[in-house]
Amino acid sequence: MLCHTQSIHVMGLAISLPLRSFGIGPGKAFWYGQLSGLVEIVAGILGVCFVQLANSLLPFALSFAAGAMLFVVFNEIIPEITSQNRTMSSWWLMGGFTVMMALDVISFDEFIMSVTHCIFDLDGLLLDTESIYTECMQQLCAPYGKNFSTETKLEMMGKSALEAGQILIRELNLPMTDEEFLAKSNELYTQAFPSAELLPGAERLIRHLANYNIPMAIGTGSSHELYTLKISGHRELFKLFDPVICTETKEIRLTKPEPDIFLACAEKFPNPPISMSQCLVFEDGENGVRAALSAGMRVVLVPSLPLSNYDPWILKHVTLKLDSLLKFDPVEFGLPPFDDV
């Protein structure tokens, strides 16, 4: 956006200054320069469409655009302004370029745009369901002499029930169909999940954000049926979330690490964010972190497993790592401070 704004300014100057030198009034010269920039709106829309198809060409195209702007500045603008007041013009020119370069270095999304929306994973982040989930999977695998490993669990996290079952069957070579897995796992879940408790710091953070009208969403790999089962002991608290995006049993499209589920959350907020970088995602799983980063959102990782089990790339690229939600400081992201601090 900064480059686009600069190009409009340069194009406007390139039109207005020559018109003034030919005796056209300042008002007309100004508006002719402004009107010349309107074509960039159309070109910008076409450019967005083109970028989706030509990401690999983008660095070269931006370099060409920057070179064209510099050419206009040095060929047209500098000779025009230095012919009248060389010293003052040079100082203003250097000052303007200094400010421009400083603004280019600063990331607007992170510096100017504070967090306005929060998106939460469910299992292992807000609710202590990971230990329950592990126990259920171990019970399911035990009759076949198989062990439910941490590696398999990490691969399954964030997936739909069907896709998670397919991973489990494939990795452990279980002699069962997808339908048998769904039936057996649902039977175990129905008995175990209603006892799920909130994890430390979850209720405090949720109620704090709600008190300050910070929009909150849930993006979970659980089906709506399982989600309802898991939150059955905390229904009033979870009414504070809108929207709640679940992943239905046989749905593949929205599963993490694809960004779809978090993009759907952002889109369905009553007042959607201006930029995806204004969304802060809270996650405990690798797949969820990858999904949030792919969506262009900031991520707080609160691991439900030892950090040694996580991909080093994940640990490097998350915005923040915390041992517990109790250690989250909302002020770091431009959110209101806790009232009890």
Rank of each mutant, 00 (worst) to 15 (best):
L70Y: 09
I24H: 01
T255C: 15
P79A: 07
T249F: 05
M176Y: 07
L229Q: 10
K184R: 15
T98I: 14
V42G: 15
V244C: 05
D260N: 15
V302G: 02
L305C: 06
D123W: 01
I8G: 03
V105W: 13
H208D: 09
S131M: 06
F181N: 04
C3Y: 11
A161Q: 03
K230T: 03
I77A: 01
P200T: 13
D260G: 12
N147L: 13
P273H: 11
E267Q: 15
L53A: 11
L2E: 10
L62I: 15
V300K: 01
F108D: 05
W313D: 14
A295L: 08
M101E: 11
E236A: 15
V72D: 00
G158P: 05
L188H: 03
D329T: 14
A292D: 07
F181P: 03
S56P: 02
L322P: 02
D104M: 12
G233C: 07
I78M: 05
N173H: 14
D104Q: 08
M297P: 04
G145T: 13
F120D: 00
G288C: 06
E225G: 02
E332K: 15
A66Q: 08
T228R: 06
Q166L: 12
F193D: 00
E332L: 14
A210D: 09
A192K: 05
D128A: 11
P312R: 10
L140Q: 01
L335E: 05
C141L: 10
Q139N: 11
A61L: 15
Y227G: 01
N55A: 13
L320E: 08
N85L: 06
V299P: 03
D121K: 03
V244M: 05
V302P: 00
D178G: 11
L199I: 00
V48C: 07
T190C: 01
P270H: 12
M276A: 12
A142M: 09
N75V: 05
L19Y: 03
A217S: 10
L140D: 02
M113C: 13
W313T: 14
I261L: 10
P270I: 12
L198F: 03
K268E: 12
G158T: 07
P303T: 04
I24W: 02
N173P: 05
F108I: 11
E155R: 13
L57A: 15
T255F: 04
G95Q: 08
G96V: 11
I81N: 00
T150E: 13
D284T: 06
T98E: 10
V99S: 11
E171D: 14
E258A: 15
G288P: 07
L19F: 08
I274D: 13
A29C: 12
A161S: 12
C141I: 06
E251Q: 15
G25C: 09
F282H: 07
K230S: 07
S277M: 05
L254S: 09
H4I: 07
I132V: 09
L229I: 05
L205H: 01
P215H: 07
F148T: 01
I231W: 00
M113F: 13
D329F: 09
L53S: 11
T82S: 05
A217F: 02
L188I: 04
G158W: 02
I206S: 06
W91V: 15
S275H: 11
C3P: 03
L188A: 03
K159V: 02
Q84A: 04
H208A: 10
S324L: 12
P79F: 04
H4N: 09
P336C: 11
I274N: 14
I24M: 04
T177N: 12
V10I: 15
A266Y: 03
A192H: 05
L168F: 05
